[in-house]
């Protein structure tokens, strides 16, 4: 089973996690820029974080044979802090980089005017930099937040196929599906979705435009939930090819629209970058796969 985790915050995870993920089949991932748990108080704190996403974390992942990509954005929670909003002016520098495969996480947390302003501005940046957008949906009042998200996406001019609306559940999936956006599901130990509910959604509406992620971070979460969802799919009668489509080909198709993916040369998922990545660059080829 080859796995592309389209949403996982590796900066918060250990090298044990990287080893376990590789053993479970994870060969590529996307780390979205997000809140760190502790609120930031300055733009410099953001740029150091972004530098780590395109620098150290990419190098660290390569040591374990995993291709690391990221998304860059001002997250909705901190869009409410005027000390942080100026980071919007430095985003273009990062959005031009290889391996930056989307603008994100953008969206709503508390549905404020400030959040909407930052969200709209960053959808404009996605259009300008020809990047997909990764949209976080709020934990509270998710249905209304998702509805407003879809209105803003439509107004932005960004094609629905360039947008993934994330952290969906049984209540919010259909409106995103009807809008033509990609549907992201975060499989968690307690909250959000679990793998069996995920399988039920796949059985009901099929595999098109579905991304399954662990969204593992500094909270109670499990970086192997992608693999466990794959196992649950097989148990429910899905084929190996179905699992490959959801856990590898779908994220490759979505993020490949950026033209910035950095995947193993042969597309097998069997990256063995660790030896060469420690010196003289690495063996990961960049560019989208067909």
């Amino acid at each position: 089973m080859r796995i592309f985790d389209p949403h996982i915050h590796m900066s918060s995870r250990t090298t044990d996690d990287y080893e376990a993920m590789h053993a479970a089949g994870v060969r590529a991932l996307v780390e979205p820029a997000f809140w760190l748990g502790q609120p930031r108080t300055s733009v410099g704190s953001f740029t150091d974080y972004f530098d780590a996403l395109v620098g150290w974390e990419r190098f660290r992942a390569a040591q374990f044979g995993i291709a690391h990509h990221c998304t860059i954005a001002l997250n909705p929670k901190e869009a409410n802090d005027p000390r942080c909003v100026e980071v919007l002016d430095v985003l273009p520098r990062y959005l031009a980089k290889d391996g930056v495969v989307a603008v994100g996480e953008v969206g709503f947390d508390s549905m404020t005017v400030e959040e909407e302003k930052a969200f709209v501005r960053q959808l404009e940046l996605a259009v300008e930099f020809e990047l997909p957008a990764m949209v976080h949906t709020p934990h509270r009042d998710k249905e209304q937040g998702t509805r407003r998200t879809l209105e803003l996406v439509e107004q932005s001019g960004l094609a629905p196929g360039m947008v993934v609306v994330d952290h969906l559940n049984e209540v919010t999936v259909d409106q995103v599906d009807e809008a033509g956006c990609w549907m992201g599901f975060s499989i968690y130990p307690d909250t959000k979705m679990d793998e069996h509910r995920m399988v039920a959604i796949l059985q009901r509406r099929g595999l098109d435009r579905v991304l399954v992620n662990s969204a593992a971070d500094w909270g109670r979460s499990d970086p192997l939930k992608t693999a466990k969802t794959g196992a649950a799919m097989l148990d429910a009668g899905f084929s190996e090819d179905d699992v490959d489509r959801v856990l590898w080909r779908n994220p490759v198709e979505f993020f490949g629209q950026s033209g910035r993916l950095m995947l193993p040369a042969d597309g097998s998922g069997d990256e063995t970058a660790d030896a060469s990545a420690t010196f003289e660059g690495n063996s990961i080829l960049r560019g989208s796969r067909d």
Binding site: R93, A96, K97, D98, G259, R260, E280, G281, L285, R286, G287
Partner: peptide
């Protein structure tokens, strides 16, 4: 920043990378 994806990348002789 965009130079590598617009031109090319990969190893040349003597450990030099094309993108570099």
């Amino acid at each position: 920043p965009a130079a590598a994806r617009r031109t090319g990348r990969g190893p040349l002789d003597d450990g030099v990378l094309l993108e570099d």
